[in-house]
Design a protein around this nucleic acid. Structure first.
Length: 916
RNA sequence: GCGGAUGUGGCGAAAUUGGCAGACGCACUAGACUUAGGAUCUAGCGCCGCGAGGCGUGUGGGUUCGACCCCCUCCAUCCGCACCA
């Protein structure tokens, strides 16, 4: 009986479905385990072999925990709102819901092929009204809350209103500078509009005018993490800064908690580093400098107050409001010219070419510590949006300041003695200060606090913590997203009542943008009349909380009942790519913290442990066409010709050898192709690139599942190497794994004799092999070392094969061990052996150390650290006995050449080293 | 520029705590069985050398009885951030 994987896989997938084998209950006496995949955006391209890598890993881990007696939640769903479906709608007039639906069906079919143990009853789709009702509901929670800085947590906005009525905002300074302190009486005297405008500056989800990343080609704004080098992440269109009315999430208020929370969760160092860099906390001070001969103050932000005596000039951002107040008439023309130049430069140009540019304003400020007059410059290297938009420049200690000073011939003051060589800035904090009045002789590090104390005492400024992270732009001028549950009236945003949710996404006639930079919803007269918000939420809205909905997917009264979220708690293992490091993962962490603060859930970090699967790259193949002909030259011969390199479909190539007949049929252009061969073969060029359709290097998992079966495919993906590592895909090796399964199968069936497994007691040797494997698989699976686990299965089967072991008891245990990896295969043979129940529900075999104890060890023996021979010695031997045996050994004596033993190192159970 | 990661046979990799480097698999070579082999089985397979043996984990150094592993130097590749004061 042969291993007929197609029939077996189909059979068991049907049975598991009929038995609802993967349905998970929220009530169980078992310990819980929550294993989550980052849910996919259902693109039209479908899955390639890179996508399932993480899904297979999480599937194996889920099944493993299940065998170990856990109640395992392992759900899947779709991040279904988003740009591509909408772009497709604009171009083809098809409603995004329709193509999203089709894509989901296609994804589902592909996923089902691989035999995952998802509980599909819990599936979520972010674009379903039953789901986005709760996304809107959470938005309202954020809208109706502010961040109480004293308690460091989200708090109902109503509490703030009560405080304002009682005491004004004296104890609740506004996160935004333009709202000054006001007493209770003033608050009460405000109109509703004035009050609401003030509250808007406190809300966690708020609407405001701000500089946003505007992408004209997409007709929408983008969040900072959706912009890469001045281009949109999706589509690569130019992005410019624009002032617009937008919704935001006040994520900056959570900066500190997002930072400190990293210490409580298991993310890789790389991932934590990326997040903390993105948050970009820096501790410094804001210091006021009086402007000479003007009633103005220039406030700068610095992390290096210790360098106060090394300030040679000030630099303000071109957008800084002080410029028009301080520039004397003598310099106005020049300044205007420079500002015009800066405005002419696009964001992209600024990023691409970093030139040293600037302009003197003609104004001076006074150093409050020594009365020195300091010239004020304007330069584009100072950003308006960070700190105060103005800096004090210390060329001897800061590289940019140094280059600027050199470029414009500004004299440099040295305050760090020999630490500054005049040729480049030295950013050290360890140097001893000189030329620094009361700081002379003080180490810079220590001087920081001294200066901070002094400026605070003199009222010149104060300590200040700044973050690089900005509040997240939360509205998009798009159709295919969640509508905001907000009604406008007289410029006041009124939240809709919970009972009115969901606010359904209406039908539109066309998906193009609305007037005045508004979204498509602005084209609907009834929507406009109702004064509903015309923006929609961004893609990360739905993905910020989906892990909670899986827990209680059908709850019509709550986003997730507290009882259920208390049971499942944090995601124990979250598997996905690194591309979400600063987007999804940060937003999701913030939403979780806000929901926690408001008492809706009982934990404030969503993901206990994150495992990043590596990217599977494509291994592209190339053909070389002789220019202006249809003659193709084999890779080894191209130096003799003038050729163009063209991608060729990797599926038309076996290794590096082109299937020339298949190639001719591939595209009409190539039908008459002729080939210049080497050794009778056409050899293709090879390069590792990102896997993508345009490079013809994608491999479809369906094809491999069809050819080798899901179990082979699953094990091969794991066998490729550590999950975290990126690696190019190579289909060739899959044969080896397939051969392994066939070999395993032959432990049960013989081609001629048929059934060969027997119901006999296992020998000690067989039990040793089994228990060695139990231990290894348990440890490897637990630490996500799936590649070495697959190797261990191979070793085990090889050894059982050599022992001629066909014993039911041994094979049954082995099948349970391997069921997480090759579920269909193991389930079939489990049944063949006549075992009760399902293999996927069996108990994980228990390792018994007594089967693997050794009485003797074949010790490696080294002479002076060089391995020379092996000697088998009984483990019970004393060190003296070991020494006697080793020194009497002929090989050892030969290498000792009669020299005396200086030392003999004996590590019991490990090795022996003779030092001479 | 800053930060993170990685570097081991022809290839993917293993070595979990400092203790036999290259497990397991691919590819390749030889042989067996066979009408046949893209099935299966047996053997070989880091490099140099006929051999004894020598050399080998990106480079150079260090610690150690002993280093792929720990420390320092440099090099290469990949990823993230990037004028953040």
């Amino acid at each position: 009986m042969e291993y007929q994987f197609r029939a077996i896989e189909k059979k068991w997938q049907t049975i598991w479905q009929e038995k609802k084998a993967y349905q998970v209950s929220n009530e169980s006496s078992k310990p819980k385990c929550y294993v989550l995949d980052m849910f996919p955006y259902p693109s039209g391209a479908g899955l390639h072999v890179g996508h399932p890598l993480g899904y297979i890993a999480s599937d194996i881990y889920s099944r493993f925990k299940r065998l170990k007696g856990f109640n395992v939640l392992h759900p899947m769903g779709y991040d279904a709102f988003g740009l591509p479906a909408e772009q497709y709608a604009i171009e083809n007039g098809v409603h995004p819901a329709i193509c999203t639906h089709d894509n989901i069906n296609n994804f589902r079919k592909q996923l089902d092929n691989i035999g995952f143990c998802y509980d599909w009853d819990r599936e979520v789709r972010t674009c379903d009204a039953t789901y986005y009702k709760w996304t809107q509901w959470i938005f309202l929670q954020l809208f109706n809350s502010y961040f109480d800085r004293a308690q460091q947590k989200a708090t109902p906005i109503q509490n703030l209103v009560s405080a304002f009525e009682k005491e004004g905002n004296i104890n609740h300074p506004c996160p935004v500078a333009e709202v000054k302190t006001f007493p209770a009486e003033t608050w009460k005297s405000y109109t509703e509009k004035q009050q609401q405008d003030i509250l808007m500056h406190y809300r966690l989800a708020f609407c405001g005018i701000g500089e946003v990343n505007w992408c004209a080609a997409l007709g929408t704004v983008l969040a900072n993490d959706e912009v890469i080098n001045g281009l949109s992440e999706r589509g690569g269109h130019p992005v410019e800064k624009k002032k617009l009315r937008q919704w935001y999430l006040r994520i900056t208020e959570y900066a500190d908690r997002l930072l400190s929370g990293l210490e409580t969760i298991q993310f890789s160092d790389a991932m934590k580093e990326m997040q903390s860099n993105w948050i970009g906390k820096s501790e410094g001070a804001e210091i006021n400098f009086a402007v000479k001969e003007a009633n103005e103050v220039l406030r700068v932000y610095t992390t290096r107050p210790d360098t106060m005596f090394g300030v040679d000039f000030m630099v303000v951002a071109p957008e800084h409001v002080i410029i028009e107040k301080i520039v004397p008439s003598s310099h106005q023309a020049e300044v205007a010219k420079y500002i015009a130049y800066v405005k002419s430069r696009s964001e992209r140009e600024r990023i691409a070419e970093k030139k040293i540019t600037g302009c003197f304003t003609g104004a001076y400020v006074i150093n409050p510590f020594n009365g020195v007059e300091i010239p004020v410059w304007i330069s584009e290297y100072v950003l308006a949006g960070y700190g105060t938009g103005a800096i004090m420049a210390v060329p001897c200690g800061d590289d940019r300041d140094f280059k600027f000073a050199k470029h414009f011939n500004i004299p440099i003051t040295n305050i760090i003695g020999d630490a500054f060589n005049g040729l480049e800035a030295n950013p050290t904090k360890e140097a001893i200060l000189s030329n620094s009045d009361f700081l002379n002789g003080v180490v810079q590090k220590a001087a920081i606090a001294i200066v901070n104390d002094k400026i605070e005492a003199l009222g010149l400024g104060n300590r200040k913590i700044n973050y690089r992270m900005r509040d997240a732009a939360f509205s998009r001028q798009r159709y295919w997203g969640e509508p905001f549950p907000i009604k406008w009236d007289n410029g006041i945003a009124y939240p809709m009542d919970e009972k009115e949710l969901p606010l359904l996404l209406p039908k539109v006639d066309h998906y193009g943008p609305g007037p005045d930079g508004e979204g498509p919803l602005a084209n609907i007269p009834s929507w406009k009349e109702a004064q509903l918000e015309t923006n929609t939420m961004p893609g990360f809205a739905g993905s910020s909380w989906y892990f909670l909905r899986y827990m209680d997917a059908h709850n019509e009264n709550e986003f997730c009942s507290r009882k259920v979220s208390d049971y499942w708690g944090q995601v124990d293992l979250y598997i996905g790519g690194t591309e979400h490091a600063v987007g999804h993962l940060l937003y999701s962490r913030m939403w979780t913290k806000a929901l926690y603060d408001l008492g809706h859930i009982g934990f404030d970090e969503p993901y206990k442990k994150l495992l990043n699967q590596g990217m599977i790259q494509g291994s592209s193949r190339f053909v070389y066409r002789k220019r202006g002909s249809s003659i193709f030259v084999s890779a080894g011969l191209i130096k003799d010709y003038e050729v163009d390199q063209l991608h060729v479909d990797v599926n038309k190539v076996d290794g590096v050898e082109l299937d020339t007949e298949a190639f001719k049929k591939w595209k009409p252009d190539y039908a008459n192709a002729e080939f210049i061969l080497e050794d009778g073969k056409y050899i293709c060029g090879v390069e590792v690139e990102k896997m993508s359709k345009s490079k013809f290097n994608t491999v479809n998992p369906d094809d491999l599942v069809n050819k080798y079966g899901a179990d082979t495919f699953r094990m091969y993906e794991m066998f490729l190497g550590p999950v975290e590592q990126s690696k190019p895909w190579d289909t060739k090796g899959i044969e080896g794994v397939h051969r392994f399964l066939k070999k395993f199968w032959r432990l049960f069936f013989d081609e001629i004799k048929g059934k060969i497994w027997v119901d006999e007691a296992a020998s000690l040797e067989e039990l040793k092999v089994l228990h060695k494997t139990i231990k290894k698989i348990e440890e490897d699976t637990d630490r996500h070392s799936f590649n070495t686990a697959v190797s261990s299965f191979m070793i085990c089967v090889n050894e059982l094969y050599d022992l001629g072991c066909h014993k039911k008891s041994v094979l049954s245990d082995l099948l349970v061990l391997m069921a997480p990896y090759a579920p269909h295969f193991c389930e079939e043979l489990w049944q063949v052996l006549g075992n009760e129940g399902l293999a996927i529900d069996a108990a994980f075999p228990i390792f018994d150390a007594k089967y693997v104890v050794e009485t003797a060890k074949d010790y490696p023996v080294s002479i002076n650290g060089k391995m020379r021979t092996n000697i088998a010695i009984d483990l019970s031997c004393t060190e003296q006995e070991v020494s006697d045996i080793v020194l009497a050994n002929a090989v050892v004596q030969k290498w000792m050449e009669g020299k005396p033993v200086k030392k003999l190192i004996f590590v019991k159970g490990k090795m022996i080293n003779v030092v001479i």
